[in-house]
Write a protein that binds this DNA or RNA. Structure first.
Length: 483
RNA sequence: GGUGCGGUGGCGAAGAGGCUAACGCUGCGGACUGCAAAUCCGCCAUCCGUCGGUUCAAAUCCGACCCGCACCUCCA
């Protein structure tokens, strides 16, 4: 297998570039995580799943990945919501951090190496702001500290705008105290009743952007490999992070800036302000987290992805198809010699080569800017190949290749975080399984007597209970319905 | 107004100079089945927003235009 080159689209340069980590074999990734004032919605889930998949792929390719995702737990929205609910802000934030993990775990998202919180990094943040003031990139006005965009010559390089344009298009009224309308707060003076911390400029709290600069620096260093988030973070959030970090450290903050596209609803961005958002846990009532993850990866991460139930139903069917192939393979791997005396050498060889070919193409797809849509297509092809091979049963002499193929198939799906083993949704006790078996045996007797009415009644009765049965020449197998 | 992204079969979605335009869903035909389910096989875009241009060769490059979306303000 020749080692192809991984290419990544870099927002900074606007091009797909060969991925070359700063330090060979190691990758540092920082992803902007949620502001924890509510359950996460589908739009929040996309970057979480996308970057988790990127991480998994890099690990699969042998990189040692250090993955950081923050929680913004000090913020206006949290404060407002806490007030409304009459709760301490930190308590509210912690609640939704806990809830975040429930959703993310369900989506099969691996935990980051560190999930830093703003509230636990005040020291680093204050030091950072102090540094910027000392270097002359920031100024103080009445307890607030602002970053002066005009003093940072590269300002606008990520979002491709210049400072004059910003001024022209500004829709917010200029704050008279700022040197330039584009200047943003590094530190905000405390208002009564709000969470606050001591600082050289008096009591206050950090601005939004500074946390990511301070925390990424702490865990990944001044310069790291990849920084990710949604498209809407390019400006102003990431632009400002770059300004802060590069002004202070004098070196490039992150080498690759990676941004995912939006989830849309009827072609419009899903967002809180439009009110057209869907909470993940509401979607989970109808579709399993695995289906949601599969759906999110079925389109390239930079393209917009429209949401509606029908799309999820299609994803559900697709995932079921992949799982069926795996299930059948497992089954055949245990039915050795049942149907066939032996498989032909030629067929076995072709099958093995086919599997290797699909793995190669899967890698190629992922190497091309993490093209999960294409990678999934390879999974479908692999499923068909497996179904074909196992169709007539698998003989003893092919058991080895079939279990190897099963492992390869399972591994590739795992790179995308897709679980081929359907978890037993609810506890199916030994007793219920035995009872189902008993019914199926009874049905077989009925079938032998050609009493199809009884046989069909048992089948439809089980189906209503969510049990789907499939007759094979040898016996009858059963499974739980799709989900 | 500025900046960026996109328009591919009934639907979704890959492909970015040259093999029959992947893959999934749907539909149709067939195999298997008592009937199903699952699976397999076959068929379904002379064509890739429109009009020009470059080229031996273009969904793929260039130009103009039309349409949609996003960012420029908290937002993943």
């Amino acid at each position: 297998m020749k080692d192809s080159k991984l290419k990544v689209y870099n927002t900074l340069t606007g091009e797909k570039e060969i991925f070359k980590p700063l330090c060979e074999g190691k990758v540092g990734i920082y992803v902007c995580g949620p502001t924890t004032y509510n359950f996460i919605h589908l739009g929040n889930a996309r970057p979480i799943v996308v970057f988790d998949t990127i991480r998994r792929y890099l690990e699969y390719r042998g990189y040692e990945v250090k993955y950081i995702q923050n929680f913004t737990d000090v913020d206006d929205k949290i404060i407002n919501r806490a007030k409304a609910e009459n709760l301490p802000a930190h308590e509210l934030a912690q609640t939704y951090i806990d809830e975040y993990f429930k959703d993310a775990d369900a989506l099969n998202v691996k935990r980051a190496d560190v999930h830093p919180k703003v509230s636990e990094h005040m020291g680093e943040i204050i030091e950072f702001v102090k540094g910027l003031v000392e270097k002359g990139f920031a100024y103080t006005v009445d307890g607030d500290v602002y970053f002066a965009v005009k003093r940072f010559k590269d300002y606008g390089k990520l979002s491709k705008r210049n400072i004059e344009e910003l001024q022209a298009g500004a829709r917010v009224e200029a704050d008279e105290r700022k040197e330039h309308p584009g200047d943003f707060a590094l530190w905000k003076k405390a208002k009564p009743g709000e969470p606050q911390w001591d600082s050289p400029w008096g009591k206050g709290r950090p601005g939004w952007h500074i946390e990511c600069s301070a925390m990424s620096g702490k865990y990944l260093g001044c310069s790291f490999d990849m920084h990710g988030g949604g498209f809407d973070l390019i400006f102003p959030h990431h632009e400002n992070e770059i300004a802060q970090s590069e002004a202070l450290n004098g070196e490039q903050m992150a080498k690759y800036w990676v941004h995912n596209g939006f989830i849309t609803v009827k072609q419009e961005k899903m967002s809180k302000s439009l009110g057209n958002f869907f909470l993940l846990r509401d979607i989970f009532k109808k579709f399993s987290p695995d289906v949601v993850r599969f759906y999110l990866l079925s389109t390239h991460y930079r393209s917009p992805l429209d949401f509606d139930d029908e799309k999820l139903e299609i994803a559900q069917k697709g995932l079921a198809r992949l799982r069926t192939a795996y299930r059948l393979l497992k089954e055949k791997a245990n039915e050795s010699g049942l149907v066939k005396a032996f498989d032909g050498e030629k067929e076995i060889k072709e099958f093995e080569e086919g599997v290797a070919e699909h793995r190669r193409r899967f890698n190629e797809a992922m190497d091309d800017d993490f093209n999960t849509a294409l990678a999934i297509a390879e999974l479908f092809d692999l499923a068909r190949l497996i179904n074909n091979f196992t169709a007539g049963g698998v003989a003893q002499n092919a058991q080895g290749v079939i279990s190897k193929a099963g492992k390869a198939y399972h591994d590739l799906a795992g790179v995308l975080g897709i679980r081929l083993e359907q978890e037993n949704a609810d506890s199916s006790s030994e007793l219920t399984e035995a009872l189902i078996r008993l019914l199926l045996d009874t049905r077989l007797v009925a079938k032998k007597k050609k009493d199809y009415q009884i046989a069909d009644e048992i089948r439809s009765g089980l189906q209503e209970l969510g049990i789907i049965i499939e007759d094979t020449p040898q016996s009858t197998r059963w499974r739980r319905g799709e989900n």
